[in-house]
């Protein structure tokens, strides 16, 4: 999404707009949900920080819509355009979320095996079209600029996807409307409160529950899964179990190592340290697909 925001920002900039674009990271880890925002105006932009009343919301991963903490609908109103990258169609989402405003979807086909698929280019392409003020050339130029470090084939594919999405949304060109400014004439009271003094037993930043980290299923962060080939594992039992930085490998009484996939983050340290190379790294998506196939047979 950072890339998408930069493509959109660069495309606006090429069209002569003042621009501000920024990603907002939460946890410093791979696969953590992130969001990014873009502002564009004809005048220098003085506003800063997260956009509280968006004109357009783009959701690159439709599983985030249901995650309250991701807050994808915060500040959205009837005039907010929603673009969701999803294989369910717009009508389904409108109904699901009870939205009154315009909703569009972009279908997401899986990427070729060896490529990371950037929904960024496609969503930036669609978003560019919605603005009604970004031309095809500016979009193409912006995609090339932002993806210049990728391999040439990947750049071409993304340019293709961005332009296809741009063309696909032709009927909705200019569907975005500019937000109004918040007048100082009549404004909402911020409702400040006086913070009372509170005792240290409640006002120090402490977690009182023990072993709470176990409850956080950090395995959900994994993009690669370590898989032990028990035919190759010589049951040394101590190397992978000791080196795993998350204590996610335990050995049974017979010294057979077991990976706790609820908490394995997929750092692949175990893969690197196993002397007989008994641990393989499998992309999580592939492993999940294999799991569900196994479950259904």
């Amino acid at each position: 999404m950072k890339t998408a925001s930069r493509i959109l920002g660069s495309a606006f900039f090429r069209e002569g707009f003042e621009v501000q674009d920024a990603p907002r990271y939460g946890a410093e880890r791979r696969g953590a949900p992130i969001f990014a925002y873009v502002r564009a105006a004809r005048e220098p932009i003085h506003e800063r920080g997260v956009i509280t009343r968006p004109d357009l919301v783009v959701v690159a991963d439709d599983s985030l819509v249901s995650v309250a903490a991701a807050g994808v609908l915060v500040g959205a109103s009837a005039r907010t355009v929603m673009l969701i990258c999803s294989n369910d169609d717009a009508a389904v989402w409108r109904e699901r979320l009870g939205l009154d405003g315009p909703v569009f979807t972009l279908a997401c086909e899986p990427a070729p095996d060896d490529e990371v698929r950037f929904l960024g280019a496609a969503s930036a392409g669609a978003a560019s079209r919605f603005t009604g003020v970004i031309g095809r050339e500016s979009l193409e130029h912006a995609i090339r600029e932002e993806l210049q470090d990728l391999r040439p084939e990947a750049v071409e594919r993304n340019v293709g996807e961005g332009l296809t999405a741009f063309d696909e949304m032709e009927a909705h060109a200019g569907c975005l409307s500019e937000g109004t400014i918040r007048s100082a004439e009549a404004y909402e009271d911020p409702n400040w409160v006086e913070l009372p003094f509170e005792g240290v037993e409640i006002s120090a930043p402490d977690i009182h529950g023990a072993a709470t980290s176990v409850q956080v299923r950090t395995g959900l962060w994994r993009t690669m899964r370590p898989v032990i080939d028990y035919d190759r594992c010589n049951r040394c039992s101590w190397i992978c179990t000791t080196f795993c930085p998350d204590s996610a490998i335990h050995a049974d009484a017979d010294r057979t190592p077991r990976i706790d996939y609820d908490n394995c983050k997929g750092c692949l340290v175990c893969v690197a340290v196993c002397p007989p190379h008994a641990i393989a790294a499998v992309p999580e998506q592939v492993a999940v697909a294999a799991d569900s196939e196994e479950a259904s047979t």
Partner: peptide, 26 residues
């Protein structure tokens, strides 16, 4: 004046609620 809103305090109270429950549990 600390710029701190009612909504922010409400959110904080939720977190404190969890902390209190934890302490109770433990």
């Amino acid at each position: 004046r600390l710029l701190y809103t009612e909504d922010e305090l409400r959110e904080l109270r939720k977190l404190q609620g969890i902390a209190v429950a934890e302490r109770h549990d433990t």
